[in-house]
């Protein structure tokens, strides 16, 4: 198990430092009979799944089957949505995520999230990285400067922006903005990274760059990635899980190693989907 650093503790680890890679399956996130309702309408129901440490798990399936909603349960962003109800159990590193009294802020620091549309704050590039760090108790200027450089290098943005850290982040291209957002999440040293179709809002070229970056993160972080792109899932994921809408609610149809799901699916629905016949 990775030791969880105290927020104010030393922040010396390199974001791309080698960590236990995805070898023996060792669950870090356990999801048990998780359901989510918007009002009375179920988004997905009865999902039971465990996510292995240091591995990349791809969530695939057609639109509207609750994959994004599923991700937002894991860092309790569902709290921000009015009328949203979650039942079931989620355990991350032995922490009961859905328990009412937990420190949500602490939870969200430990679980990074990348959204479909790049969403840097309307601040400068530097402030985008510095602001969350300061909020989480890292105030030493030198240390901040160092983390900024390390994370920007880690996402391959350093050489592109090192001379204009003071310019607005919103002036960057879409692909650069998305890499900045990944850097912003990495700077907080998350234990788990949630990625909600991180390439789908980008042009093909930037999408390729971001995908390469994500592949580079593989084995270093536990990553859950939602994607519509089966080829991408097949290329980069260790594990895969297929969601599908049944009886008006999303359900988990099949989960397993990417190899098994794509080459030897058990469920006929999975077989049809991965061979491109449905969805």
């Amino acid at each position: 198990m990775t030791p969880v650093e105290s927020l104010t503790g030393p922040h010396s680890r390199h974001p791309l430092e080698e960590r236990p890679a995805c070898r023996a399956p060792q669950p870090i996130v356990e999801i048990d009979r998780l359901s989510l309702y918007y009002g009375d309408k179920p988004a997905f129901q009865d999902v039971t799944l465990s996510i292995n440490k240091g591995c990349m798990t791809a969530l695939v399936g057609p639109s509207g089957c609750g994959k994004t909603s599923f991700l937002t349960c894991l860092n309790r962003l569902t709290d921000l949505i009015a009328g949203c109800r979650v039942s079931g159990q989620i355990t991350i590193n032995a922490l009961d995520v859905l328990a009412p009294g937990i420190n949500v802020i602490q939870l969200r620091r430990r679980i990074g999230m990348i959204f479909q549309k790049p969403n840097p704050f309307p601040l400068t590039i530097r402030r985008n990285l510095e602001f969350p760090l300061r909020e989480h108790g890292i105030r030493d200027r030198e240390q901040i400067t160092q983390i900024i450089e390390t994370t920007l290098r880690a996402v391959g943005l350093w050489d592109e922006v090192k001379d204009r850290l003071g310019s607005p982040a919103l002036a960057l291209s879409g692909g650069q903005q998305q890499r900045l957002c990944i850097a912003r999440a990495l700077a907080l040293l998350p234990e788990v990274l949630l990625m909600d179709e991180p390439c789908s809002a980008l042009d093909p070229l930037s999408s390729g760059v971001v995908e390469d970056l994500i592949v580079g993160l593989r084995g270093r972080y536990t990553i859950l990635i939602v994607t519509h792109n089966l080829a991408q899932a097949r290329r980069i994921a260790d594990y895969a899980a297929l969601f599908w809408v049944q009886n008006g609610a999303g359900r988990l149809i099949e989960a397993g190693t990417a190899k098994q799901i794509f080459e030897n699916p058990r469920d006929p629905l999975t077989a049809a989907y991965v061979s491109g016949m449905r969805g």
């Binding site: 969880v4 650093e5 105290s6 927020l7 104010t8 590193n93 032995a94 922490l95 420190n103 802020i105 602490q106 989480h136 108790g137």
Partner: peptide
């Protein structure tokens, strides 16, 4: 899980 520092508690 254990590192609920005072800092974040007070911010809460």
């Amino acid at each position: 899980m254990t590192s609920l520092s005072n800092n974040t508690l007070s911010r809460w």
